[in-house]
Write a protein that binds this DNA or RNA. Structure first.
Lengths: 227, 227
DNA sequence: TAACAAACAGTCAACCCTGTCTTTTTCTTG
DNA sequence: CAAGAAAAAGACAGGGTTGACTGTTTGTTA
């Protein structure tokens, strides 16, 4: 917008930092206290921001939370990309599963979980969460396919990848109640075997050529139920 | 204990019914409004019970919720057993997955989800939820093994069953945000194939679970692929 | 530098929720 | 039938949360 002066944005700078602190604090509190326990008062205290300033940036709690959701999706995406980049290329199925398993048991997942559950009974929140969740979902899917080197034009492969993601989501959920890493590891060990076995051993079982959905992209969920 | 009179427990009867209504209302509200939205006031209104009576039966909100958790686990168990009983014996892998998929997308699952998530940041609630959840978990596992006719003494089979349950849990979670039945069905179709393929085609390594995929695997086609 | 707008600070009222307390009803029992 | 206990009813206080509101500082612009 406005740009072109000597002393560049000293205030806008502070504002930005304030916003960031507020969003960070929100996410932290989501993890520590859950959605219901994340009061705006707590957030402002945690962020070291006055209540007035908070209300200036985010007039309503919904505004704050929605912004936090956006912030969180960005963080999630970045984390995943980073982890993927750090992965030895072609490092094997198990390594990919480790990556996914770690992501879905990380604090950001926990925070996201709180938002999902809250959104279920909060239309305004759902409106913000749903599309962003789809976006992350697509991204994770794409990344997984890429890392696994899977060929989705082969019937059944796409579903296998989706199943993998739903599996780690389930593991992530279970993890919030009882943190049993060993169990998780064993399951992922086994699952890696199954994937490897299935991916190159049994591409298309049982004549089911009804439609080979080799569609390049139409992943995850489609919210708009045509009606 | 006390038994042997003419007028059989008329009041105790009413009390019992009241308790039941309160618990039912609680579960309903968990589904409709989420945990945070389930205030004791709402519950008493919904149940048609005066606030005083409610407080008489459940002095604290925690008492109410804990009782609701117990109630819910009982309901879950019963529902599962009933569904299993209604299942054509030896009805095939896919039918079992349908059963599981249905359970993990039902209202009782939704209610349980609310409790899990709330319990994560509420020690008192966690204390009640954790053991009961384990119980249900074990029960579902046992049931699944039984219905699938799986032999858990074979290495890898147990993990596959666990993976199946975590998968449906993940699908259930996804379902609360976006209800996409078709997607679910396709994934479960595929999963059934994988299970069948894996269970009798690749029992696992002889003597070493860490290295399973080297096994030649006898092409036993004994398993019924119903359809 | 003066005037104006945006950012920031902090108080306050309205609201809801929980759990205590007192009162009334209903059942049981001697 | 009377007395006492359990159950049910409803008012109320205390605590916490949200967002509106007023005042203050900081930055921009003429």
């Amino acid at each position: 917008m406005v740009t072109a002066a000597t002393t560049r944005v000293p205030q806008e700078e502070r504002s930005r930092a304030m916003r960031a602190r507020l969003l960070e604090a929100t996410v932290e509190l989501l993890v520590e206290r859950g959605f219901a326990g994340t009061s705006t008062t707590l957030v402002s205290e945690r962020a070291g921001v006055s209540r007035g300033a908070q209300l200036h940036h985010f007039p309503t709690k919904n505004d704050l939370v929605v912004a936090a959701v956006e912030h969180l999706t960005a963080v999630r995406g970045a984390e995943l990309e980073a982890a993927a980049a750090a992965l030895p290329s072609g490092g094997g199925t198990r390594a990919v599963l480790t990556l996914l398993g770690d992501h879905f048991t990380s604090p950001v997942f926990t925070a996201a979980l709180e938002l999902w559950v809250a959104a279920r009974t909060d239309p305004a929140l759902m409106e913000a969460v749903a599309p962003l969740e789809q976006k992350v979902g697509r991204e994770v899917h794409r990344l997984t396919v890429e890392l696994l080197g899977a060929d989705e034009s082969v019937p059944g492969v796409r579903e296998l990848v989706q199943a993998t993601l739903d599996l780690v989501r389930g593991l992530g959920l279970a993890n919030t109640i009882t943190d049993d890493r060993r169990r998780r590891e064993r399951i992922l060990d086994r699952w890696a075997q199954v994937i490897d076995l299935t991916l190159d051993a049994a591409p298309g079982p049982l004549s089911d050529p009804t439609d080979a959905r080799a569609t390049p992209a139409t992943p995850a969920t489609s919210r708009e139920t045509t009606r």
